[in-house]
Amino acid sequence: MGKKEKEFQIKWKTDLPYRYSIGKLAVKYFEELKNKKIMGSKCPKCDKRYMPPRAVCANCFIEMTVEDMIEFSPKGTLVGFTVVNYPFIDPNTGGMRPFPYGYGIFKLDGADTYMMHFVDETDHTKFKIGQRVEAVFKEKTEGDIYDIPYFRLIKEEEE
């Protein structure tokens, strides 16, 4: 193209609010989260324990009800980690997601599936696969997803 072409731009800003039905299991999850309990779902047929909870066990195609929900330990094992170090707009807030942030995939004690969440560590050399982690609750829980703002790495000497 060689020389810089003139750009014609039209700018506007859009605000697009949505409201989601979160489902019966999530209602129970958030009610119990307020009591600082972590609830997942359990398949009545194959006994697979899901965290995050969900309505159907894909393998069995069986509904997992609120009655089938079980409590998990807030502690678990770090399976993998990264430190996210790039800018992007967070669709949940409409603003930039603050970075860098620690991000891990864990298996809570008693769960058969993995979950991902923030970790309060941004130095990747401080993480070790297989180390223990723990969900940190806000002091005053409100029954929303940010009641656990992040997981923390449990230091070996604490164990």
Partner: peptide, 9 residues
């Protein structure tokens, strides 16, 4: 939107 969006990058 509930389970994955908040921390997903």
């Amino acid at each position: 939107p509930v389970w994955e969006r908040p921390s997903l990058a």
